[in-house]
């Protein structure tokens, strides 16, 4: 650190106050603009979903609704079963996938971190290799559908995301912050490896678990790609894929409107798409404030060690 302190003493230092003021001005402006840019798309989305269909056709989506209307939501909630079912699927895969993924990931990360495990580097490379080389979607698809017979099976949505090598590496970093002496002394006391992991290591890596858990949860919640490949049964669509198919073709929308017994002519397609997007994003925005702090904490711990 010392050598980095080599501040140029001959530089123009005196105007410290002015410089700090200027810095603050820049930093507050930049951060404010960035924050607005981050929020703006959401604002436009929400506003559009509450705009009257004809107003959109004539004036476009505004920053504020040019003519307020609840019609899109009314149509969606007239027959909410498709959405509720999609919610159910999304929640199911997110919960199961996150729990199993987190458990397997942290357990493996622990093994990879044990200094007395001879093959830990080989193990690491075994995992890392898969990020470099893969068989491509086609052979994976054939393997999943033909050999594992996972078509229209929830497992097809869960398996592909269950182990993420990047998270595995991050998790190992978390665990490496725990002193090795803990494992060693427990071992001397006669505890088994699995017990050590469950009773000692897991409780100590809570921020790490929270972070990686959220990563997994986000991956599952936001996944539409695997559903596109493996799910053909509309009743098994997760939320993001339902949204995607609504955007892709008018057919999905007309299905929703038929379920709701709304005549095609009065379906507000333009605002309906946006309303669907709002409904799909809603839970994340609602959960976000409460999970964000764990996330930041976990990332912070991980980064300091990493």
């Amino acid at each position: 650190m010392e050598n980095k302190l080599a501040i140029d003493r001959k530089g123009t230092i005196p105007k410290t106050e002015g410089a700090n003021l200027l810095f603050n001005l820049i930093s507050y402006t930049v951060v404010t603009v960035a924050a607005i840019l981050c929020l703006l798309p959401f604002e436009i989305l929400i506003s559009g979903s509450f705009t009257d269909e004809n107003a959109i056709a004539l004036h476009g989506y505004g920053i504020l609704p040019s003519k307020f209307s609840l019609e899109a939501y009314r149509v969606l909630f007239k027959f909410p079963e498709a959405i509720i079912r999609a919610y159910g699927v999304s929640i199911f895969i997110t919960v199961v996938g996150t729990i199993v993924g987190l458990f397997v990931t942290s357990m493996t990360a622990y093994v990879m971190n044990r200094k007395d495990f001879k093959y830990r580097n080989k193990l690491a490379f075994f995992f890392y290799f898969t990020t470099l080389f893969n068989g491509g979607i086609l052979s994976t698809y054939i393997f999943f559908v033909k050999y594992l017979q996972l078509k229209n099976d929830m497992l097809a949505l869960i398996l592909p995301l269950l182990i993420n090598v990047f998270y595995l590496i991050v998790m190992r970093t978390f665990i490496s912050s725990i002193p090795d002496s803990i494992s060693e002394s427990a071992k001397i006391d006669g505890a088994g490896d699995f017990t050590i992991f469950m009773k000692l290591i897991l409780p100590l890596t809570k921020p790490g678990l929270a972070t990686i858990g959220l990563f997994y949860a986000l991956d599952y919640w936001n996944d539409w790609y695997n559903a596109m490949l493996y799910i053909t049964d509309v009743n098994k669509y997760p939320l993001q894929y339902l949204l995607f198919s609504t955007l892709q073709s008018a057919e999905a929308i007309s299905r929703i409107s038929k379920m709701a017994s709304v005549a095609a002519i009065s379906v507000p397609t333009l605002s309906l798409k946006l309303a669907m997007a709002v409904i799909a994003t809603g839970p994340i925005i609602l959960v976000y404030p409460s999970v964000q702090k764990y996330f930041v904490k976990g990332l912070t711990v991980g980064a300091i060690k990493g």
């Binding site: 397997v104 990931t105 357990m107 493996t108 622990y110 093994v111 990879m112 044990r114 495990f117 193990l123 075994f126 995992f127 898969t130 080389f133 893969n134 068989g135 491509g136 086609l138 052979s139 994976t140 054939i142 393997f143 398996l159 592909p160 269950l162 182990i163 090598v165 595995l168 088994g192 490896d193 699995f194 992991f197």
Partner: peptide, 24 residues
């Protein structure tokens, strides 16, 4: 025990990533 603990992940990755590699 450590081998057993690493086994689920190894099997999973083998299943999901390595076997389809044969498809190249």
């Amino acid at each position: 025990t450590l081998f057993l603990m690493a086994l689920p992940a190894v099997l999973l990755v083998f299943l999901i990533s390595y076997i389809p590699m044969a498809g190249i």
